[in-house]
Write a protein that binds this DNA or RNA. Structure first.
Length: 214
DNA sequence: CACCAGGCAAGTA
DNA sequence: TACTTGCATGGT
């Protein structure tokens, strides 16, 4: 695009919605659990699953890795895809045990590219989940792209329909200050505006704070 | 009833 | 490489 509208849109969204204070969690471990559970799933369902683990006192690395996939699946059932996600979550936790000496902080404090490679090697962790963990738990300067980002920006003709994850991420990061707090807030604001005004069944965004960019 | 939700990997050609 | 399909609960 001719001028950089990425920052302008960020400011519009922040003015309209205010700070979103993501990621909602009480600990880094809870955050990464949520990152896996929320894959293609409504956050309301994820909250129920996390609450089940909390009530059982299981939100500790040593306790979670001691569970079988079947046992873990039973707790996270409300999040959907529970058999799949139980395996994926255990894959992630086992990587932390084996590659980072049982320390999630060791992973989060690793160099960005090293941590990202390790996360992407885990079966069940793709780019969005990896980047979410790196940004929201690790505080790394990496922009998280998701289906909402693609929908909101392509629908407003700010990105082509076929733009890839990596290309979208590069566009944002090339046009914004390298600021983890800004990346954090921006992604959350995109989710907010998509949920409120840019749903699949609402092709036109009347009343949307981004209407002027159409 | 249909459709959607803060994806990802495996299978197919 | 480029589609397609399975995974699954809960809210609208």
């Amino acid at each position: 695009m001719a001028e950089n509208r990425f920052l302008e849109i960020y400011n519009s969204l922040l003015d309209y919605f205010g700070p979103q204070n993501w990621w909602p969690s009480d600990s880094s471990l809870e955050m990464i659990v949520g990152a896996v559970l929320t894959q293609n799933t409504n956050w309301q369902n994820v909250k129920k699953a996390i609450e089940n683990l909390k009530k059982a006192g299981l939100l500790e690395l040593e306790l979670l890795v001691a569970l079988t996939p079947e046992e873990l699946a039973n707790y996270i059932r409300p999040a959907g895809y529970y058999n799949l996600k139980a395996k994926r979550l255990l894959n992630l936790l086992h990587m932390i045990v084996n590659e980072y000496e049982w320390s999630l902080n060791n992973l989060l404090e690793d160099e960005l590219e090293n941590g990202r490679q390790k996360l992407l090697q885990v079966n069940g962790i793709g780019e969005e989940t990896a980047d979410s963990i790196l940004l929201y738990a690790g505080g790394h300067k990496v922009f998280v792209v998701d289906a909402y980002t693609h929908r909101v920006f392509s629908r407003h003709n700010l990105l082509a329909e076929e733009t890839s994850y990596q290309e979208i991420q590069e566009q944002f990061m090339a046009n914004l200050p390298a600021d983890a707090a800004l990346f954090n807030e921006y992604h959350a604001l995109i989710v907010k505006v998509a949920k409120e005004f840019c749903r699949k069944k609402e092709p036109l965004c009347q009343h949307c704070p981004l209407q002027k960019y159409l």
